[in-house]
Design a protein around this nucleic acid. Structure first.
Length: 418
RNA sequence: GUGGAUGUAGCUCAGUUGGUUAGAGCACCAGGUUGUGGCCCUGGGGGUCGGGGGUUCAAGUCCCCUCAUUCACCCCA
């Protein structure tokens, strides 16, 4: 293992069969989204840096974890750390607020954050997400969350668990924030070092701390501070989700790391992963598009889901579509005809390949055994009579057919769908 | 950014108190006679022991640095 060139830290080469599972996961997510009417949108993998700065000044992922560079023209650019800001920018820039609302979109692609790598935490990771623009109603939140659950289920994790909270709106959150600061201020001598700084920088995150759990138990609950609209919104949302048969639980300590959220925040987890483990999450961000010079009121809800993470939870039971592969083996001197027969089969829609390594027939069979299910033999006296032998590697059954009946035989005898 | 662990063939790992040409299993390749796999047998290729420096007559084995991986924080997907 003396690779002179190695991949950048925190990145990964995704090889088969993992690459196939990734591909399958992508299909599941995108298909599922489309059944909900969420159509794929692709944005650049990099944006002008201010797009991200504007959206999350106090979040770590834009503060310390940016992959930024200045291009030859002096423009400040940043590799996207998440999808929501870019979609918001695209929504505004393309005047999508003039389309019939709501606008349902989804995205899938690589995201970049310069953090310390760890299992299931990479500097480049893949994220799938959905965004719903234009609706302020709790039904919108519900739809997005149901989509999130549907994707998880379709991927093979039954009964996802929804953890839900509302962090209020511009009217009620400041009041809560004050109360929270007041409470924690009294306790400040008992707080861990991180929490002492959080007290000033991002008080809501105090609730997230895993050390000072005892202190937060006594902390004021935002529920008591919700304004009427927020309370109604949250109430309707929980009712809808419960009525849909989903497992929902309020988590008063759930606040999420990005600071553009308003009202609804949620995380999807799974009972099998322990109560803490969240697979991914999302929420509502009614002010986001406006921040990027969008119209005054542009409500939005969405979620982002890390593909590598969800895949690790689902990998074993994720089936990948199987194809019956045909191996065209050749007798000595028939390499050419063998390649051409494979090509003919492919044109007829089969998955076929031939030997490119100059192997002996015996070696070809061995090779076929690990990559194919069917072998077609090219050469010998059969070939002179326009015939080929076809052998199933599963049961060893072999038969001879006229070449022009090969594809019929493959279809009928061997039940291969091309 | 902080703290801990690890790094020997493609993979999983052995390598005694530092001592001659660094091993195994799996995988890969070729044979076991003349046109057919999966088992078995035989043989083969493949490692500057992550990289660099140091100690020593001598280092895969000790020390330092570095890179990478991994775990726990931070944060998050």
């Amino acid at each position: 293992m003396r690779a002179e060139f190695q991949k950048p830290r925190g990145t990964q080469d995704i090889l088969p069969p993992m690459s196939l599972k990734m591909e399958q996961m992508r299909r599941i997510a995108l298909d599922c989204a489309q059944t909900f009417g969420y159509l794929p949108v692709e944005t650049p993998v990099f944006e002008q840096t201010p797009v991200f700065l504007r959206v999350g000044e106090s979040t770590d992922i834009v503060q310390h974890e940016r992959y930024s560079f200045t291009d030859a023209g002096g423009v400040e650019l940043t590799l996207r750390p998440e999808g929501t800001a870019a979609i918001a920018r695209a929504y505004v820039e393309n005047g999508m607020f003039n389309q019939p609302q709501p606008v349902r979109m989804c995205y899938y692609g690589p995201m970049f954050r310069r953090e310390r790598p760890q299992a299931l935490r990479y500097r480049q990771h893949t994220q799938f997400g959905a965004e719903l623009y234009g609706s302020v109603y709790p039904e919108a939140d519900a739809e997005v969350i149901l989509l999130a659950c549907a994707v998880v289920e379709r991927a093979g994790l039954p009964d996802p668990m929804i953890r839900l909270n509302s962090i209020g709106c511009s009217e009620c959150r400041p009041r809560y924030r004050e109360a929270l600061i007041r409470y924690y201020h009294e306790q400040r001598n008992h707080l861990c070092r991180d929490c002492q700084t959080r007290l000033n920088s991002n008080p809501l995150r105090l609730l997230d701390c895993k050390i000072d759990v005892a202190i937060r138990e006594q902390a004021p609950d935002i529920e008591e501070f919700w304004c009427e609209d927020c309370a109604t919104h949250y109430g309707k949302l929980t009712d809808l989700l419960s009525a849909s048969g989903r497992q929902v639980r309020r988590d008063p300590f759930l606040v999420r790391g990005l600071d553009y959220y308003t009202r609804t925040v949620f995380e999807i987890g799974h009972p099998s992963m322990g109560s803490q483990a969240a697979l991914f999450g999302g929420g509502r961000y009614d002010g986001l598009a406006t921040t990027l010079d969008g119209p005054e009121s542009t409500p939005a809800v969405g979620f982002g889901m890390g593909i590598e993470r969800i895949l690790s939870a689902v990998e074993q039971n994720l089936g990948i579509p199987s194809v019956t592969r045909i191996y065209v083996a050749h007798l000595p001197g028939f390499e050419g005809p063998s390649l051409l027969l494979a090509e003919q089969l492919r044109r007829e829609g089969f998955a076929a390949e031939s030997d490119l390594m100059g192997r002996s027939l015996k070696a070809q069979l061995r090779d076929a055994g690990r990559r194919s299910q069917i072998v077609v033999f090219v050469g010998g006296h059969e070939w002179e009579m326009d015939e080929v032998n076809v052998k199933s590697l599963q049961d060893g059954v072999q038969m001879t057919v006229k070449r022009d009946q090969l594809s019929d035989l493959l279809h009928q005898q061997f039940k291969i769908n091309s």
